[in-house]
Amino acid sequence: MPSLPAAEVQAGSKIIQDVITPLGSTLFAKGKILLPRDLEILQAFLIQHVEIEGSENENKTAEPTKVASKQAAVKTGSIVNETLLSKSNSPLHDEYDKMLVLIKSSYRSVAAASLPIYELRSQLELLISHLNDYHVLKFTPHVLSEEDYNYHNAVLSALTCYKLAGWCGYPQKDWMQAAFAGLLHDIGNTKVDPALLLKPDSLSSSEKEEVRRHTTYGYQLLRNVTAINEGVRLAALQHHEKVDGSGYPLRLEGSQIHFYAKLVAVADIFHAMTLERAYRKPQSPFLVLEQLLKESFGMLDPVIVQTFIQKTTDLYNGTRIRLSDGRRGEIIFTDRSNPTRPMVQVEGKIVNLAIERELYIQEII
C-alpha cells in the first residue's frame, strides 16, 4: 500500500513512520495500529499523508510528511488552526488535544453506539502520564471555542478529579475511576436540547427541569458500560447534589452522596466558571476559589474544597501574575489563612490583597 492521504487511511492500518504534527511532535509512533478514533485525530491535527505498512516509500524518512503537513496547515487559513499552530507545544497539550477529539466524538455518538471505553481509558492514561505538568490554575488548552465548552469541561474535570482524589488521600485504585467520573459526568447533556444548554437568558421552570434531567440521562447512558465502577455512574447522577440536601435530582445529604460525585462537584464548578461560555466571560480562578469556599458551608464538601484551595494556591514566591487592574507583578508571600490573596510586588510596591479587597489576581502569567 503506498503513502496515503490521511483522509483515505483505514482503521487497522499499521504505521511504518512516526506521524509528526505541524509543530514537530510525535502524534503516533511507528508500529501503531490505527483505531477508528485515530482517524479523526489525524484530521484534527492537520496530518495530510501517512506512511502505511507495505508502502513503496518505507525506507524514506518522515520529514517530507512533516513538511507537507506544515505547508498544508498554513494553506488552510483557518482561525482555529492558526491559533493551534501559534501556541507552544508540550506533551501534555498533545495528549489533551487527542483526549478532546476522542471525548467529543464519543459524546456525539453515544446515543447511537456503545461508548469506546477502552480507547477512552487508553488515552486518559496517556494524558495522566503528563499530570506533573498540569497545574489547575495555570493550564490553558490550545484552542478554546465556545461550542466545545462541554468537552473542555469534561477533560479538565478528569485531570482535576485525578489530582484531587490523591490530594484528599483516597486510595490510588480510586484515582483513575475519579478521573473517569470527571470525564463522563455531563454525558447526559447529549440528550438535552442544545438550545437550552446555550441559552443566555434565564430558563423557565420547565426548561430548568429538562436541563436537570441530564443527571439521570447520564446514569442511564453509563448503566451498562464496562470498565467503570458504580461510583462513576453515581457521579453522573449525583454531581449536583448538595451536602445540605438542597441539590438535585434526589436531594441527597452528606454521606448519601458518593465521594466521586463530591470531587466532581468541585472540579465541575471551578472549570465551569473559569472557562469561557457562549454567554459569559471566564472568571478569575482566584475569585472562583473564594466562591467555592463560600459554597463549602452547607453545599460542597468542606474538606475537599479546603484541600483543593490549599493545593492549587501553593505557588512559589516569584510566580508572575496579572492583577484585575491590568498591572503585572509577582507573588512574594502567601498567608495560608488567606491563600487566594497573597502579598504581591507590583511596580516596586508591595500590595496586600487580603487588605486591598477591590483587587484580585486575574491570572498567572
Rank of each mutant, 00 (worst) to 15 (best):
A179D: 05
S284M: 09
A68M: 12
E358D: 13
M343I: 09
I304P: 11
V74D: 09
N317D: 13
P339K: 08
L84M: 11
Y134A: 07
Y279W: 14
V288I: 07
L115I: 11
E209K: 15
E56D: 15
F270Q: 05
I79V: 15
L127K: 02
I269A: 05
Q17C: 11
L144E: 11
K66M: 14
A195H: 08
I52G: 01
L127A: 07
D174F: 13
T83E: 11
N317S: 15
F259G: 06
I332G: 01
R233C: 15
D186I: 03
T216A: 15
I361Q: 04
E56I: 05
E276F: 01
Y248T: 11
L293T: 02
L287I: 06
T190F: 05
H152Y: 05
G348M: 04
Q256C: 12
L287W: 01
E209P: 07
T319K: 04
K60Q: 10
L263T: 00
T215W: 06
K14D: 01
Y134K: 00
C161A: 15
V192W: 02
R223Y: 11
H239R: 02
L115W: 04
A62V: 03
P171W: 00
S205D: 12
E330C: 07
H152S: 10
L234T: 10
M176G: 09
S255V: 06
R357L: 10
Y149M: 05
D301A: 07
R328E: 13
E82S: 15
S106R: 00
L164W: 08
K242C: 15
N57Q: 14
R320W: 06
I20C: 12
S114V: 05
T216H: 11
S55E: 15
T83D: 08
L164I: 10
Y107P: 00
E358I: 06
E147H: 10
N150D: 08
E56A: 15
I355W: 03
A6F: 02
Q283P: 03
H135V: 02
